[in-house]
């Protein structure tokens, strides 16, 4: 998995940009088995763009929870870990049967160390909670079914 060295140091890349700057060339592409580097003129400056081996598969995979994607529901606004309560051991924000408005907080999603509130998004009644506490969810996962036919 590891390679013996970084291909080029930041100083090397700065030097390439400086060399290009003294020429009429717009960009320089270097492609090897391990990496591709493009140093390109961009208006009054230069950019560097690196790409590494194609075998670098997507590292992070979020396991989406399979849920029926029908009817009005509360969806995960972003990927992360879904929590039903504000703190471990605390009562959940909402239980089935709870009446909610668009701004009612019905859960929390922890992403990148931040607690992000999940809002109900509409008026209605929580019909069913579809995702267990502390489950990793993908963006858009339906977390709760919302019954919006109530008066």
């Amino acid at each position: 998995m590891s390679t013996p060295d970084l291909p080029l140091s930041p100083e090397d890349v700065a030097e390439i940009a400086a060399i290009l700057d003294g020429t009429a060339y717009q960009r320089l592409d270097v492609t090897t088995a391990r990496f591709r580097l493009r140093v390109a003129r961009d208006g009054d400056g230069f950019t560097q763009e690196w790409t590494f081996g194609e075998d670098a598969a997507p590292a992070a995979t979020v396991e989406a929870v399979a849920t029926a994607d029908t009817g009005p529901g509360v969806r995960a606004p972003l990927p992360g870990t879904f929590y039903r309560a504000p703190a471990p051991g605390a009562p959940p924000f909402v239980e089935p049967g709870a009446t909610v408005g668009p701004d009612t907080v019905v859960g929390i999603i922890e992403t990148m160390k931040l607690m992000n509130p999940v809002h109900a998004g509409a008026h209605g009644t929580i019909a069913e909670v579809l995702v267990d506490n502390a489950t990793m969810v993908a963006k858009g996962t339906v977390l709760m079914r919302l019954d919006d036919t109530a008066p």
Partner: peptide, 24 residues
């Protein structure tokens, strides 16, 4: 990911084109 390069500019990053930003 196209980062600037030139005199007086330093970039400290682990993200190249195709890089992954995990949610964790």
């Amino acid at each position: 990911a196209a980062w600037p390069v030139g005199p007086g500019i330093r970039i400290d990053t682990h993200i190249a084109s195709g890089g992954e930003v995990p949610p964790y």
